[in-house]
């Protein structure tokens, strides 16, 4: 039975990659020109302005941040934003993964249309998103709003509305991360699991979830960054009811227009810091993805 030819002790790379070639030498002037152009463009458009916010925030040391955190409005707005973001992320996690599975693994009429519609929240004006939700869920004249209000659930001008608006805007992020990974994975492994006796639930948890784990993590982090900062849609849905439903980005606007610029910069800095932190987390996680 033992056959010598099968005793390959040295694992071979099944997909030998071409050795990475150094970039082809271009004309140095062109290379440097492009490099400089790109760096300058990004510096003036993104880096410098962003760093100025940090500078303005810390113009007086930590006083700015301290002062902002002493303001109960700020604390309330940050808490609200945090809660909303977490809720929206959880909703998008469940439905995002569900819809990604639906789009990749099942065939049904209207799939192409649904696929195209997934991107709508990314390209629709946040104001339109807010308006749309108001029209349906408003307690006064919405389609479902009055009935929901009758059930004791106020959506618009309250937390559920803010969460819905945020979930709407961030919905594609999880789906768009998970779909390509699912497609790439194929359903071979899932079929193999089924032929070995696993039921749908076991297949999902033991095979599918480990396969899309990292994609889900990126999706969630991006979703979190986006959810914390959503402004337009939330503003429309939250209305101007004052402190109760003011999220952090709305507070920035209010404080800035009330000439409390230091507070505005401080809150902005915290939001920006959270966003950049999310990006760094994603950037650090990416290389850990198992290479194919």
């Amino acid at each position: 039975m033992a056959s010598a030819v099968l005793e390959e002790t040295r694992p071979r790379d099944p997909h030998p990659r071409a050795t990475p070639r150094p970039p082809r030498e271009g004309h140095p002037a062109v290379t440097w020109g492009l490099r400089l152009l790109v760096v300058a463009y990004l510096f003036f458009l993104v880096v410098w302005p962003t760093s100025l916010v940090a500078k303005n925030t810390f113009a007086n040391g930590f006083d700015g941040i301290q002062g902002a955190l002493d303001d109960p409005d700020v604390v309330h707005a940050l808490t609200l934003s945090g809660q909303v973001a977490v809720a929206a992320v959880l909703i998008n996690l469940v439905f995002g993964v569900g819809m990604a599975l639906l789009l990749v693994r099942f065939d049904f009429p209207g799939k192409r249309v649904l696929n195209a519609l997934i991107d709508v929240p990314l390209s629709v004006s946040p104001v339109v998103v807010g308006l749309a939700l108001v029209l349906v869920y408003s307690g006064r004249y919405g389609w479902f709003g009055p009935w929901l209000e009758g059930q004791g659930l106020q959506v618009v001008f309250a937390k559920p509305g803010i969460i819905m608006a945020t979930a709407f805007v961030a919905l594609p992020l999880v789906i768009r991360e998970v779909v390509p990974v699912l497609e790439d994975m194929g359903d071979d492994q899932e079929q193999a699991a089924r032929s070995l006796g696993a039921n749908a639930w076991q297949t999902f948890w033991r095979i599918t979830v480990p396969g899309i784990k990292w994609a889900v993590v990126y999706g969630v982090v991006l979703c979190l960054a986006r959810s914390l900062g959503e402004f337009g849609a939330v503003k429309v849905v939250a209305g101007n009811v004052g402190g109760e439903s003011t999220t952090a980005p709305m507070l920035v606007q209010q404080k800035y227009q009330n000439f409390q610029q230091e507070t505005a910069y401080s809150v902005s800095f915290m939001l920006a810091f959270a966003a950049v932190l999310c990006l760094i987390v994603v950037a650090l996680l990416r290389p850990k993805e198992p290479k194919k």
Partner: peptide
């Protein structure tokens, strides 16, 4: 019968290994 209840062993052309195990 669904695949999981047939008690058959199936080997795929492209192995279908569980990559994470």
């Amino acid at each position: 019968l669904p695949a999981r209840k047939r008690n058959v062993g199936f080997v795929f052309q492209h192995y279908a290994v569980f990559k994470h195990m």
